[in-house]
Amino acid sequence: MVHTQTPKAKPDRMFFIASAIFVLMFLTARLVLKEIELPMFVKIIITILAVGSFAYFLIQYARGVKMLDELERKIQLEALTFAFPLTMVLLMTLGLLELFIPLSKEDWSYRHVWAFLPVFYYAGLAIARKKYT
């Protein structure tokens, strides 16, 4: 998310911090859950912590959006309007392909699709920004 030039620096910083915490927590959790043998309850706690950091990220995002001005909100909406259907198209394409091609779990499978959403979101953000500048 980004940033009007009016005095809105703090929400941006909080959004960045929340994003960094989420990415760090998610990657650490993924590594630990995959590589280290731990009791089940510890694995569940690690999973909850990773999900919790994502919830914190979403709260910061929602707070940030509330503080944006009307044009920036429109840009955010257009970015999501671009990203969400594109992710759905990717998901459906993979679903159809998987009916006749065995897709490798490690390369292309549903578990990786969510990662494309932020990529499409930033692409949508760039397109929307270009439209209004």
Binding site: T4, Q5, T6, K8, D69, E70, L71, E72, K74, K131, Y132, T133
Partner: peptide
């Protein structure tokens, strides 16, 4: 109480307030 970009977009008629 808006961003400079918003003013610019309105002036250039790319955005209707």
């Amino acid at each position: 109480g808006v961003s400079r970009q918003t003013i610019n977009a309105i002036e250039t008629e790319k955005y209707e307030p």
